[in-house]
Design a protein around this nucleic acid. Structure first.
Lengths: 238, 238
DNA sequence: CGGTACGTTGAGTCATATCAACCATAGTGG
DNA sequence: CCACTATGGTTGATATGACTCAACGTACCG
């Protein structure tokens, strides 16, 4: 319906550029995707869906960043993952046929395509290569979740913070001045690491004192990746 | 090759009895499974596979219990999940085409069938309903992992222990005297909860003092499920 | 009967959470 | 234009949950 909008992204370009899960779709299927999807622009702070929602489709991110999180008992959020260009969110609920177990919020202005669930399911049924790709995706994420569980259960907050910084470097990269490209509030950092905001602040200052990072408001400059790696592992047991 | 063994379980019975992921296979496919699988009996303590292994197939559990765990830096194990009759393990690595991110050890004598990866992949390619079922499985587990992450990150050890006890009740059930059917060492309990063995011991005694459980060596009798539920949630913040 | 694995308890320590106060910034509305 | 408010960041003081270390008990096993 929205496919005659101002320059909205075409799925075939997306699929080719990004090597995403859609890479195994036939030209015909991509065309179908193009036709049925709905393109959306979303601003920081907008909610894509909320925990408990029954979801009628999933999102493929074209640009921007989404945070996917769960809300714990006392309302504290736990960030589960981020999604950026080329990634899809909400597919879990769609495929497991359960209500959403997370919420998703835009943290960097975002362009995304909403794709109705039926398409996903129909592709799985007609295109085994695509199905396999989806399974791989889910299984890969499952592996990452397992690692995360082990880390949170066993590592100290200090170790985890260092690890998360490295993860963010890896996932979002650094600009030409070695600043982390993704910008998060201290609270958000705390909600990934699974700790209190104050603890993140204190540890970041320590990292700064140790010349591992430099801090300019929300921007974090990575000075010593090796040092952070050392902290994030066992080796840190000073 | 082993299909002429002493009464090894036939897949068609398994699939029907348990309503497991194989329920959508055709009779022909089940026959193929029967023919290609390898039946194994395993004793407590035996290892099915180790973290880092490249795996050539997965296991379908016919009886007994397996613990699936990751080993953290200092060698401490983190139990990720259990697998019991009707469940499959190691499918994650097979499907994501990555090395095993966990190890698996028998904790209750076990009968299991080893099924070569190619079969799994070929079924996915030829049987979309099966593929969908697998995706559902992975996505469901992913949802559980997300909850677990949030719990470990936000709840106290006390809350988590209560929660795990309830989880075990739910997953393995109670005998006629309200004893948990699964029997774990204190260390194993600690390795699920993500804490030290001593902490589990202390908290269990507290639970006992509070008349929530009764302890007879490794056997745990559940006296007050409601009470445990209360502790495991927010509400516990006395 | 010594050995090994598991369970228990106590004491001391430390990392991290909590609580509280304060500052900086930016947006809002009158 | 300025007071007002909200949001995020920072720091300090204090409390405490949970870990570590160590000793000891118990039970089963060869």
């Amino acid at each position: 319906m929205k496919q005659h909008d101002i320059n909205f992204p075409l799925c075939d370009r997306c699929a080719l550029d990004r090597g995403a899960i859609f890479k195994h779709l036939t030209a015909e299927e991509v065309e179908m995707l193009n036709f049925q999807k709905e393109f959306r622009r979303l601003k920081r702070g907008e909610i894509l869906y909320n925990e408990g929602n029954r979801i009628s489709g999933f999102y493929c991110i074209h640009s921007g960043i989404i945070k996917v999180y769960k809300t714990g008992f006392d309302g504290k959020e736990q960030i589960i993952r981020f999604a950026k260009a080329g990634e899809i969110i909400a597919y879990r609920s769609v495929l497991s046929n359960e209500v959403a177990c997370t919420s998703a919020e835009v943290i960097e202005d975002c362009e995304a395509c909403f794709i109705p669930s039926e398409i996903l399911v129909s592709f799985i049924k007609t295109n085994p290569a695509f199905a396999l790709e989806l399974i791989k995706l889910a299984c890969h994420e499952l592996g990452e979740a397992n690692s995360f569980i082990t880390d949170i259960a066993q590592k100290t907050v200090r170790e985890r913070l260092a690890e998360i910084l490295l993860f963010l470097v890896n996932d979002f990269g650094l600009d030409d001045q070695n600043y982390l490209k993704i910008s998060l509030t201290r609270e958000e950092l705390a909600n990934i690491v699974g700790t209190a905001t104050e603890s993140v602040i204190r540890l970041l200052s320590e990292f700064k004192a140790d010349r591992l990072v430099e801090l300019n408001g929300r921007k974090i400059k990575i000075l010593d990746k090796k040092g952070l790696e050392k902290i994030s592992n066992v080796l840190s047991r000073t």
